[in-house]
Nucleic acid binder design. Structure first.
Lengths: 136, 136
DNA sequence: CCGGATCCCCTGGGATACTG
DNA sequence: CAGTATCCCAGGGGATCCGG
C-alpha cells in the first residue's frame, strides 16, 4: 500500500490561487538549485569550489542560481574582505530545513528511477505498435 | 535543529552523472505536473474535468503534461469507447507513490512560504540600501 | 469530447569575454 | 577570486484554429 488518496486537504490545498507550492517549485525546480543545495549541505563553500564541484555549470548560471537562492533565504552569502576576495555560501536555517523534503524526493527518485525508464520504453513500443494506448 | 549535514551519501549521490534526481525533476518540476498529480490524487478524472478543475491551463498544455506523465508511468490513460469519447486519467501505482514526497514538499512549502516572502523583502531592502549583502 | 497542428513569445540556460 | 555584460538558442507555455 504505497498510495494515499486525499492528498489535498478537504476543501483543497490553496494549490492554485497564490499557489504556495508553485512558488517554491518555480525557484527550486530549475536545473541547478537542488544540486547546489545538496552540495552546500556537506559544508559551506566558496564560489569557485562550487563551480568545480558541480562541473558542467557556467559561472554565469551558478551566479544567478546562488543569487536567487540567497534572495529567497535558502543560502547566505558572506564576503570575507581579504585579497584575493573570498565569498562563502552556506545554507541558512531554512535552506537546511529544505533538505528534508529534498531527501524524500531523492529517495523516491532513486527507488523509482528504473521503473520510469521501463515505463518510457514500454510507451515507446506501444506507440510503434500503433495502439491508441490503453483502451476499455 | 532542523538541518542535517551529510545529505549526500559518503561518496556522493550519483546526483551529477546520469543524475536520477534531475531526471525526475525535469519531468515533474514543470509548471503543471505536480498540480495535475495532486488533482488526480483525489480521484481519476476525465480530460475536461481536469481542465476545468485546474482552470488557467490551456488544453494544449494539459495534453502535453498528461502525455509526459503517462509516458513516464505516473498516470494511466483509458479510452472508453463511447460517443462522445471519454478518456479517463488516473494515477498509477507509481504515480500514487509519488504523492508521498510530494506531500513532504507541500508541507514544507506551506510551513516556510511566509519566511520566503519575508526573505525576499529583506533582500530587496538590503539591495536598495546599497549594501554588498552580508560582509565579514 | 478529446485532443493535434500551428504560431508566437518569453525565460532559462549556455558560451564567451571582460572587470574589481 | 568572484563575479558581470552580451549574445544566442532551445524549449516551455499560451492562444487559436481545426479534426476525429
Amino acid at each position: 500500500m504505497t498510495g494515499s488518496r486525499g492528498l489535498l486537504p478537504p476543501g483543497g490545498v490553496d494549490f492554485n490561487q497564490p499557489c504556495v507550492v508553485r512558488d517554491v517549485v518555480d525557484r527550486v525546480g530549475d536545473r541547478w538549485s537542488m544540486l547546489v543545495l545538496a552540495h552546500l549541505a556537506d559544508m559551506p563553500q566558496r564560489f569557485n569550489a562550487l563551480h568545480r564541484a558541480i562541473g558542467d555549470i557556467s559561472k554565469q548560471v551558478l551566479s544567478r542560481t546562488l543569487r536567487r537562492l540567497e534572495e529567497d533565504g535558502f543560502v547566505s552569502r558572506t564576503v570575507h574582505d581579504v585579497t584575493p576576495p573570498q565569498v562563502e555560501y552556506a545554507l541558512t536555517e531554512m535552506g537546511s530545513s529544505f533538505l528534508e523534503p529534498l531527501r524524500a524526493l531523492i529517495g523516491w527518485a532513486e527507488a523509482h528511477h528504473q521503473a520510469i525508464v521501463v515505463a518510457r520504453e514500454n510507451f515507446g513500443s506501444a506507440q510503434k505498435a500503433g495502439a491508441t494506448r490503453t483502451r476499455a
